[in-house]
């Protein structure tokens, strides 16, 4: 893959290479953060000095379907040893979809000095770079966070309903089978996490993984433009909402549209299909 700076991204500073991370392992202004779906990966070996942010136990409120609040974020930031000035570099499994999810939550608290390690964990491993099982010794920091701001990059049910009423741009990043509502399961084992199958009216189908190369790196801007602008017909100047099942895969697409293609107003609907497909009175399409 070419240098990040040569790929034509709107905001290339949001990505760093594995080589850059390797050069900054001892940089006190940089905190490397691993965030995975698979809970066994970090303990089985991680980038030296990296801390783990677990999307379930660290980012979600245990009692409400919501993210952690200001005090929770401050406690998390303290535990992982960052200040508002720290450059947070996220990486993880599944082409960084969990890393982009964690980054998105950090940005809800205004920690925009956050980047993704292109290619994620897989690329680091395949390049033969070192992993360690040794957990870093972190000195707790003091972090004074603002209240979580859900107004800019997060969408809610009622906002999505209003958005479709205005024929706004929606991207469904689930698999084609999920989008169509088709049943794709073994006999007797339904897999849909919702009462109904289908998609939000007016949504375009574009599985999140189309933005990634085989090695987990992001496609270049021309390739991404071909998909999202030419094929889907999205207008970067128009408000756009991405969704999936719970908002994890769509955070990857949110990252692509907002940071790599420079869309001005992109929100991630984390209620996604598990909320929309189960809600009384909401319209769907099949």
């Amino acid at each position: 893959m070419s240098d990040i700076s040569s790929r034509g991204y709107a905001n290339p500073d949001k990505l760093v290479s594995t080589g850059w991370v390797a050069e900054h392992l001892n940089d006190s202004n940089v905190r490397v953060i691993e965030s995975n779906e698979d809970p066994l990966l970090y303990p089985s070996g991680h980038v030296s000095g990296a801390v783990e942010v677990d999307w379930v136990k660290d980012l979600n409120d245990p009692l409400r379907r919501d993210y952690l609040d200001k005090s929770g974020f401050e406690a998390l930031a303290s535990r992982i040893g960052i200040t508002p000035q720290t450059t947070a570099v996220f990486y993880g499994d599944k082409s960084n979809w969990w890393a982009t999810y964690a980054l998105w939550v950090f940005e809800l608290f205004g920690h925009t000095n956050a980047k993704i390690m292109d290619g994620g964990r897989l690329k680091w491993v395949e390049e033969g770079r070192e992993l360690t099982r040794e957990k870093p010794s972190i000195s707790p920091t003091s972090y004074n966070a603002p209240e979580r701001d859900d107004s800019q990059i997060r969408a809610f049910r009622d906002g999505v309903l209003a958005h479709i009423g205005e024929n706004g741009q929606l991207v469904d990043v689930r698999s084609p089978g999920e989008f169509s509502g088709e049943k794709l399961h073994m006999e007797g084992y339904p897999q849909e996490g919702a009462v109904r199958g289908g998609h939000i009216p007016g949504a375009s189908s574009c599985p999140w993984s189309r933005a990634a190369n085989e090695d987990g790196t992001f496609k270049n801007a021309a390739e991404l433009s071909e998909i999202y602008l030419n094929e889907l017909g999205l207008d970067p100047a128009e408000p756009t909402i991405a969704y999936c099942r719970i908002g994890e895969r769509s955070s990857h697409t949110w990252f692509v549209l907002s940071n790599l293609l420079g869309f001005g107003d992109v929100r991630n609907y984390d209620g996604s299909w598990t909320e929309w497909g189960n809600s009384v009175g909401l319209p769907i399409e099949k």
């Binding site: 779906e37 677990d54 084992y189 897999q191 598990t274």
Partner: peptide
Amino acid sequence: GKDISMGKGRGLTELINAVVY
């Protein structure tokens, strides 16, 4: 444990189901 993602839980359950099937 119960603090795994829905997708991970589902995938592992389907792995067991494939054997049971």
